[in-house]
Design a protein around this nucleic acid. Structure first.
Length: 354
DNA sequence: GAGGCGTGGCG
DNA sequence: TCGCCAAGCCT
């Protein structure tokens, strides 16, 4: 295949088939950055409403930097991978303080920022200034693996080097912005993971996977995910319309999001008395409370975890004073609504409390 | 550098 | 129901 043939083909295809997406109508690195962080491991349809929410709430990077972290997380609520939102906020503050509020456009500078890795730096640099750097994301892995019959395992450690070299070899000297958009859009719409329609593909004549009947097995991906089982018992502690909640900390799911008093077990425990044994706080609480609701067991699915969860909604009687553990604090219903919460917690609140 | 991090959609 | 995926990054 001639050097620029590949790029010509996909950019021509792109001009005919591209979606009109809002972040493609700007060269402002701030807006491009917002869209790229939102779209990490996320479908366009899922990320789109969040892009509009963030642009409206924070028209400039100064607006984002001046916000509270909780406000940023609350806006991100429901999108998942919440470290993206925490890093988004950190980076906004850093750009305002260290870069005079001017969002960088250079690949090497972008890489220094929290939450921006090789893919995102290449995307922002090429889209905002045309810098000649090749993007390498899931789409690019797939397109290159199929067209060039590259069988290197994309979950292995050699993959990044091998595919980066391939991606750079097809990158034209000029037009890197459109080329990068094109190869990703081509992967998203034409060279899809499952059942691509190769009859309509402009590269079917050159595609090695197609010629050798290996479209279904490329790219090679050996690593399988292991799913861990977990069992949560959430205690919704309510008194006079106020709720006891805490901000999650540490290296676990939903860091920075708010939830309730939690007892995690090795198995699904249905017995409240058993849960309270050796827990002084719960034991005391049960003397002062009525069980307002005992929920069914919900199964919340994450990529690496299946969390079986039961909610115990306790209403503390008016005349009792409850000594909350360190991390818990009382919040009114309006405050609860404003706090950032996981989808698991938010779904329960939406169904039974709000 | 292998493992961890969310949610929703699809076959 | 289940597994895989969707514009990756951090530790």
């Amino acid at each position: 295949m001639k050097n620029d043939f590949f790029s010509k083909k996909i950019t021509n295809w792109y001009l005919q088939h591209k979606r009109d997406l809002p972040w493609r109508n700007t060269q402002n690195p701030y807006y491009i950055w917002l869209s790229e962080i939102i779209l990490q491991q996320t479908r366009v349809a899922q990320g789109m409403p969040y892009y509009y929410k963030f642009v409206n709430a924070f028209p400039t990077i100064q607006d984002l930097a001046n916000a509270e972290e909780n406000e940023v997380l609350r806006l991100w609520q429901g999108l998942g991978y919440y470290s993206r939102a925490r890093n988004l906020h950190k980076t906004a503050k850093m750009v305002v303080e260290d870069y005079n509020g001017i969002f960088p456009k250079k690949y090497s500078e972008l890489l220094k920022l929290k939450g921006i890795g090789t893919y995102t730096a290449a995307a922002i640099a090429s889209f905002s200034s045309g810098e000649k750097v090749a993007v390498l994301d899931g789409n690019v892995y797939r397109v290159l693996a199929r067209v060039f019959g590259e069988t290197t395992d994309i979950s292995g450690k050699d993959a990044k080097k091998v595919f980066t070299q391939l991606a750079e070899s097809v990158l034209p000297d000029d037009n890197s912005a459109m080329h990068n958009q094109a190869i990703m859009e081509f992967g998203a719409l034409q060279c899809t993971p499952a059942l691509p329609n190769c009859m309509f593909c402009p590269l079917s004549m050159e595609c090695i996977a197609y010629a050798t009947g290996r479209v279904g097995v490329l790219p090679v991906k050996s690593k399988k995910i292991k799913v861990k089982e977990r069992f949560f018992n959430y205690f919704i502690i309510e008194q006079n319309g106020n709720f006891a909640m805490r901000k999650r900390k540490g290296r676990d799911v939903w860091e920075g999001m708010y939830d309730f008093y939690l007892k995690e077990c090795e198995e699904n425990i249905q017995d409240l008395l058993y849960l309270a044994t050796e827990d002084m706080f719960l034991t005391d609480l049960m003397k002062k409370s009525l069980i307002k609701r005992e929920s069914i067991t919900y199964t919340h699915i994450l990529t690496h975890q299946r969390i079986q969860t039961k909610f115990w909604h306790l209403e503390v009687q008016e005349n009792f004073l409850v000594d909350l553990p360190q991390e818990l604090e009382w919040y009114s219903l309006n405050e609860v609504d404003d706090l950032p919460k996981s989808t698991l917690v938010n779904n329960y609140l939406k169904e039974f409390v709000f």
